[in-house]
């Protein structure tokens, strides 16, 4: 049961020169960069290409997931400060409102969710892998979609949970969203949370209390995390074709 592809548009994706609207610190290692790029409407889960140009013409490009909901402006990109990262270092150490960058997109026709796709919906995030899933949660709320949804979100510490207050507020709406944080270093904050590093057992335990079988599962994070979680889900009986993954970083 492979979901229908999202077809591309008719025109080539062109670069849009745009000024950074604002930069907001989310966690010690993540900033949100807001840009009003004037791109075609995106789907929750899609990403953009970002290009920076140095004074001598040298350019660097990276891809970032869109964290803002479709239809809301400006675009929010959550950018983690990577060790030795050339582009993330700029966004963390130098970027200011008014700086000019280029953006193109939206890109990606697989790791995307629309309210019409329905649920039950299982979202599994590791660290900054929350970004595309945040777009899904926000769209779900904006569309008043009461799709049964479980978010399992692993972060190193409680303070490294990106959009923590917003996620808690979305859960408090009581519209079918359940949230379990897995805090790797430190005690779980709430009874629904998972203590310690999220493993197959912890994921299965949380899934069994949810009492739904997901029709669509989205897993995003570092490769090691995504590999462990997707394998756990497949062994737990979730049909592999219903699991979509987005990974960053290398193999074990």
């Amino acid at each position: 049961m492979t979901p229908a592809p999202v077809p591309p548009g008719d025109a080539p994706l062109r670069w849009h020169e745009v000024a950074i609207a604002r930069v907001e610190r989310r966690t010690p290692r993540v900033v949100s960069v807001y840009v009003d790029a004037g791109l075609a409407p995106h789907l929750a889960g899609q990403h953009v290409d970002v290009r920076l140009t140095a004074p001598d013409g040298y350019r660097a490009e990276r891809s970032y997931s869109i964290a803002s909901a479709p239809g809301s402006a400006p675009l929010e990109l959550a950018i983690e400060h990577l060790e030795g990262g050339e582009v993330s270092a700029y966004f963390h150490e130098a970027a200011e409102p008014g700086d000019r960058i280029e953006v193109r997109g939206p890109i990606g026709g697989h790791f995307a969710w629309r309210p019409a796709d329905g649920g039950p919906l299982l979202l599994v995030a590791g660290g900054s892998g929350m970004a595309p899933l945040m777009a899904m949660l926000r769209q779900r709320a904006m569309a008043s979609a009461r799709v049964a949804t479980l978010l399992v979100y692993s972060a190193r510490t409680w303070d490294e949970v990106i959009w923590r207050d917003e996620i808690l507020a979305l859960e408090a709406r009581g519209d079918g969203l359940d949230v379990a944080f897995a805090i790797t270093r430190g005690a779980p904050a709430r009874s629904a949370d998972v203590a310690g590093r999220l493993d197959a057992q912890g994921l299965h335990a949380r899934l069994s209390t949810w009492r739904h079988v997901p029709s669509h599962t989205y897993v995003c994070g570092a490769n090691r995390f995504v590999e462990a979680m997707t394998q756990a889900l497949v062994r737990g009986g979730i049909a592999a074709p219903t699991i979509r993954a987005e990974r960053y970083g290398g193999a074990l």
Binding site: E17, L52, T53, A54, P55, Y58, R59, A60, E86, Y90, A94, A95, E96, G98, D99, R100, I101, E102
Partner: peptide, 11 residues
């Protein structure tokens, strides 16, 4: 177009 504040790390 230049991105103010970006110097980059050239290969």
């Amino acid at each position: 177009m230049t991105t103010r504040g970006f110097s980059g790390r050239r290969p």
